[in-house]
């Protein structure tokens, strides 16, 4: 590697596109890996397959996005923790099924709204950071992820006392990681981030209300070091996740099967 994409220039148009593709590509890669951890553990076979399919969609996005930045394998397998630019929400451990569903609700709502805007900006020829083609394609796939998360949130929130309790706990615990999603990414000038955040909040609030869950009133940013994933600061469990994701490639460079 001759250039470190994490520190690529953010002043040239090329550098701007790289920074946005890296952030969104890392979101997709890391969440894909987290979802894949459910293989063999999901509560029922249909969910096992659903989570694996969502993970596969995200992996496909990651491959396209990271290829805009450099060599996809080098970026996925050979970067250190602090070179990753994913939002901290995506790296949070799966927890119980409710925690995974709430993470999906928060993230897929964000991704659908953001990709929709990037695709629209590309259609008008303004500031899509070179991501328009991918966004236009992926937004249709992500609509199914969001629908999946919403239906499960309703079922769990408005289900048994136990499922309600666990889902509310996840809603509260992950809330503080959601503010970071709306830090503007350089190069995506066609995106109105304040409006994106307002739309996200109203969409998530509507689902939580219907699910008889309480929208947390705590801050969505500002907790100690929460929400600095875009700057390369990550939470404790992320290092372990990377170790597992990278160890085979690092132990056997270039191995294929």
């Amino acid at each position: 590697m001759t250039t470190d994409p994490a520190t690529a220039s953010t002043t040239s148009p090329e550098g701007l596109a790289t920074a946005a593709a890296l952030a969104l590509g890392d979101d997709a890669l890391v969440l894909s890996h987290r979802l894949a951890e459910w293989a063999g553990h999901a509560p029922e076979l249909e969910e096992e397959v659903a989570l694996a399919n969502i993970a596969l969609d995200l992996l496909g996005q990651a491959r396209v996005l990271l290829s805009l930045v450099g060599d996809e394998d080098e970026l996925a397998y050979l970067r250190e923790e602090r070179a990753f630019r994913n939002a901290q929400l995506t790296e949070q451990p799966g927890g119980d099924f409710a925690a995974t569903i709430v993470r999906q609700l928060y993230f897929s709502t964000y991704q659908r709204l953001l990709y929709g805007r990037i695709a629209a900006a590309a259609g008008e020829g303004t500031g899509d950071g070179g991501l328009g083609g991918l966004a236009a394609k992926a937004v249709k796939e992500v609509a199914y992820h969001q629908d999946h998360a919403e239906q499960w949130t309703l079922r769990l929130g408005d289900g048994t006392e136990e499922s309600h309790r666990r889902t509310q706990a996840a809603v509260d615990a992950l809330w503080r990681f959601t503010g970071e999603l709306f830090q503007p990414l350089p190069g995506l000038d066609g995106v109105d981030w304040a409006e994106l955040e307002a739309d996200w909040l109203s969409s998530v609030t509507a689902v939580l209300d219907r699910a008889t869950l309480t929208v947390p009133d705590g801050p969505r940013t500002g907790a100690w070091r929460a929400g600095a994933g875009r700057q390369g600061l990550h939470t404790e469990s992320f290092g372990r996740m990377l170790a597992e994701m990278q160890h085979l490639h690092r132990s056997h460079p270039g191995a294929t099967w």
Partner: peptide, 27 residues
């Protein structure tokens, strides 16, 4: 289930003949 044997399919069931079947989802 919204996702079946592949990402492009959903799993459905017929309430008359009771057979489960794949549906190629609209995209």
């Amino acid at each position: 289930s919204r996702f079946s044997s592949t990402a492009c399919k959903a799993l459905r069931r017929c309430t008359d003949c009771r057979e489960p079947f794949d549906h190629f989802k609209e995209l």
